[in-house]
Design a protein around this nucleic acid. Structure first.
Length: 373
DNA sequence: AATACCGGCGAGT
DNA sequence: TCATACTCGCCGGTATT
């Protein structure tokens, strides 16, 4: 019954990643406001801000903000740069940096394009000494080989490592010593706890919980009643710095592609719009040597409500044409039914395709045999 | 009764 | 202000076995 796992977890976060990639590519923009934009193509400036460097953030630019608003804020800054998101480039930078991190330990997990965890074994009494050395090495190597600033956080689990990262960025290096979790967490507003977003925070506030400390000592039955049998207990554990989740690098379980339409539509010829989305998804499948058994569509209405429909098939597929055929069917019945009294009538602003339920495919002998039988 | 699937929602980058 | 493009996880409801 040695349930006491002594571990040190290092979290690495690449600072303002997309914008920093652009700074590395063109160092002359380093001290200018840099805003990474996803242009939707509806009008000149329609779309949203993906991320921005700290020069722009200090002037008030935030991710998720409409591009037009960011431009208004930076009106008096003629040197500001509004650059279109170049995900392929960021992806290639990310892959090289992830290799640096992965090579420094045995248990590695990539959490997003710019975040990763590394687990380091720890002896009793050893206060993250080894983890600290490795964390510093990672930071140095990312800086020397990619000229990129990063933030490192260390704690006894993924949650605490993440909270350490969030406590000081950019260019941070924070350790939360084992045993001092509550001290660190208690004074924070509940919404700062990883996983507690605006909705959950509002609900917590409504029952008098404002800080993580309040949450840590809240009535557990009340939490379960309000948040369910999973999130309720989990909130209480997290507030106490407890997180047993493993550092584990798993393959993706779904892919999706989505675009904004030129104008809101009630029904349209979706063939042309769907085609490139399905082609992208198909090539991702092919690259990973997998097929999918579930195909879904996503529609975002003019009121920004998300609607989804999905279909599971018995025969796994990979080709763009087959994905597109099923997605088209789903859209047809979706538009066919959108006038029923339940749903009401709405227009669609963005549409997308999603695939999941992956199975191995391709060159294994087992597959050849299965095909034969 | 257990499991699978579906669609909505919340959170994060 | 006028609101992107992803990924993951949970919830409750319903269908399947």
């Amino acid at each position: 019954m040695t349930n006491l796992r002594r571990r040190a977890v290092i979290a690495v976060d690449l600072d303002y990643f997309y914008a920093q990639c652009e700074e590395v590519r063109d160092p002359s923009i380093r001290d200018k406001p840099v805003v990474i934009c996803v242009f939707s193509g509806r009008t000149e400036d329609s779309g949203a801000v993906s991320t921005a460097n700290y020069v722009a953030r200090e002037l008030g630019v935030r991710s998720g903000m409409p591009i037009a608003f960011a431009k208004k804020i930076l009106k008096s800054h003629q040197d500001a740069r509004f650059l279109p998101m170049d995900l392929e480039y960021y992806q290639s930078v990310s892959e090289r940096i992830m290799e640096i991190i992965r090579s420094k330990g045995e248990k590695f997990e990539q959490a997003s394009i710019d975040e990763a965890y590394l687990e380091i074994g720890r002896n009793d009494g050893d206060d993250f000494g080894l983890a600290e050395d490795i964390g510093r090495k990672i930071k140095e190597e990312i800086l020397s080989s990619e000229k990129m600033m990063s933030t490192v956080g260390i704690g006894q689990n993924k949650l605490m490592a993440k909270m350490a990262v969030d406590s000081k960025k950019p260019n941070g290096f924070t350790i939360i010593p084992a045993g001092s979790e509550r001290l660190f967490l208690n004074p924070l507003p509940a919404g700062k706890l990883f996983g507690v977003g605006p909705k959950t925070e509002k609900k917590l506030n409504s029952i008098g919980i404002r800080t993580v400390g309040d949450l840590a000592s809240a009535d557990q039955k009340l939490l379960s009643d309000l948040f369910g049998k999973k999130l309720g207990p989990e909130l209480h554990e997290m507030a106490n710095g407890i997180d047993e989740s493993l550092v584990l690098d798993r393959p993706a379980e779904q892919f999706s592609r989505i675009v904004t339409l030129k104008r809101d539509s009630e029904g349209f010829d979706f063939y042309d719009v769907l085609k490139p989305l399905c082609e992208d998804l198909s090539s991702k499948l092919s690259y990973a040597s997998i097929k999918c058994k579930s195909i879904g569509i996503i529609a975002i209405t003019n009121e920004l409500k998300v609607k989804t429909r999905a279909k599971t098939i018995s025969e796994a597929i990979q080709s763009s044409d087959k994905i597109q055929e099923i997605a088209s069917e789903l859209f047809s019945s979706f538009f066919g039914k959108q006038y029923n009294p339940d749903e009401g009538r709405f227009k669609v602003r963005r549409i997308g395709v999603r695939i999941s339920d992956f199975v191995e495919s391709g060159d294994s002998k087992a597959n050849t045999l299965e095909d034969f039988l």
